[in-house]
Structures are given as C-alpha cells and as structure tokens.
Simulated assay, not measured.
Amino acid sequence: MTTNDRSQRLWVFSFDGALTAPGADRTKARLHRLTRQLLEELAGTPGELVAVLSSRSLEDLVSRVPIPGVFLGGGCGTEWHIPGGESMTLSGRPKELLMEKRDELLPTLRELADLPGVTFDDRRWSAAIHTAGTVPKVKRTLDDRLQQVCRERGVALYRCPDMVEVQFLPEITMEFGVRALCRFLKHKGAMVCAGSDANDATALRWVVRQGGTALSIGRRPLVPGASAVVDLRSLVRQTRDLVSMRDPLPTRRPEHRYSKAA
C-alpha cells in the first residue's frame, strides 16, 4: 500500500489518555463517544488517513477500536491491523530477541506485581504495572525496584498516571510506530499526532521534527513545538478545526535530515 499523494494527511492518535474517557479503568477502557464519532468522520473524509497507536497488544486494541478504515497499531506499532482485515508485523527485529528479553524479565516483574494493590498486564512487547490501588509507600518501593531492574537489564521505563510500563526492547517506542507506518504507507504528506504520556512524547517529538503538527493532551505540552489541548473535548474541537482549514498543513520534511532510519 502506498499513499505518496502529498495532498493526503496522516492522523495518528494514541489510544489511552487521548481517545478514552478521563480516569477510565485501563482494563475496561473504550473509545469515548466523541472520539469514536471523530474517528468515524476522519476515516470517511477523502484525503485523511487515520491511525490509532498503542502499547497494548494488537488483539486488545482491535477489540476496543471497531471502526472500519482505521489503521490500528499494537505493541507501539510493531504489529498492525490494516483496513480490509490484513495484519502484519513491522518490528524489524527478530522475535527471538524479544522472547529472550521477556524470559529474562517477566519473573522479576511478576514478583514486583505481588506488591499490595499492584496489578500486572503482559502486553507482549512490554509489560504494564498498574498502581491505582496502591499506597504511596508501595509506589515508591515499586519505582525504586523498577529503576534498578531497568538499569541492570538495559530496558526502557515509561511512567503514566497510575501505571508504569517496561518496554522490553528500548528502541520500540511510539516514535518507532509512527515511523514504521509512514514507511509502510510511503507517506510524504502532512501529519498530525496526538498523545498524552511520556512514551507518546517520543512520537510527538519526531512529528515536530518532520514539520508536522503535534497535539499534546494536558495543560502543558509534553515536548517543545507541540500544541497543548487541555482535554478530550478540546482535542475533538481542534481536530475538526484542522480538517476544516482550506489550506493544507505543511508537507513533512525528509526524514533523513533529522534522524536515522528505524
């Protein structure tokens, strides 16, 4: 599939924190009715390409975003569900390396998840440790031990509200997912990316470097050059404003000028 028509614009939304209701239980999270309607509108608008990207497993994400015409990326974009029903892996790394890291880390992480109030979520390419039910002392203990594990094992750690995520292969970030999709689509047109946490910030930063538009959910932008949108309703409103603009957004700059290929 190729979309090298420069008049086309690519939208990439993070799932949790951007498209879900504020404070939603991550195990029960679904699209908010406003963002579901927004995705349906975008997917049905000529010239607009729409993707939802998450560190969740692809199977988990597909079950939560049942909208035709939307590209769905699980595992930070290592696995994709393409409109029309096709699924594929775009990791660029052998799964043997992933399994080696998983086998090395999972016993330790599961042990940490036995702390009071902590729950564990195996996302294949990462592991999420949820802390919504913990007291501050337990959170501090968990954070100290996770930092030590990540330093010793060379893995990445991302903090979100009431959750800590360990990325087994540190180069597999949300930035990786956006870049992988652009390469797959051969997309050279304008780009907009929306996200809400530290892992999302990797994608927002890259999009800004390419001359695209980054929408950061929250009162303060996660990265320089991003536009802060305070909440879900503001995101929907600003997205519709961008769609209605007569002049197209700037075409993104050539990637090789800013960063090495993933």
Rank of each mutant, 00 (worst) to 15 (best):
G154N: 02
L49N: 06
R33I: 11
R252Y: 05
L58E: 09
L157E: 09
L232V: 13
G195R: 12
D25E: 09
A228P: 12
C76Q: 14
V178W: 02
M191Y: 09
V65I: 14
N4A: 13
D231F: 07
L42P: 01
L10G: 04
T141V: 13
D122N: 12
M163A: 14
R220S: 13
S63M: 11
E171N: 01
E175W: 02
L98T: 02
V208G: 12
T3H: 13
F13R: 05
V65Y: 13
L142C: 07
P116Q: 09
V138H: 10
V166Q: 01
L232Y: 03
I67S: 13
L142E: 05
M245N: 10
L169Y: 00
T173M: 03
K28M: 11
Q147L: 06
R153T: 01
H81Y: 13
V243F: 06
A262C: 10
V243A: 06
P254C: 08
V52E: 04
H256W: 12
R253G: 10
S259D: 12
A203G: 06
P68A: 15
F168G: 00
G195C: 08
M88F: 03
G225W: 06
F176L: 02
P66T: 10
T173E: 00
N4L: 11
L90E: 07
T213K: 15
E41T: 15
D200L: 05
A194C: 12
G92F: 04
D241H: 12
D60P: 04
R30D: 06
D5F: 11
P107C: 10
P248K: 02
V208F: 13
L235R: 04
G47E: 06
G117M: 05
V52H: 06
S14D: 15
G218F: 03
L109V: 00
S7I: 04
S196D: 15
S57W: 07
R246C: 11
E104N: 15
W206N: 03
P221A: 13
S54G: 05
D143L: 03
T131M: 10
R240Q: 14
M163C: 13
D241P: 00
V138I: 13
D143W: 00
C182M: 09
V236H: 10
G177Y: 01
H130P: 02
T78E: 00
G75M: 09
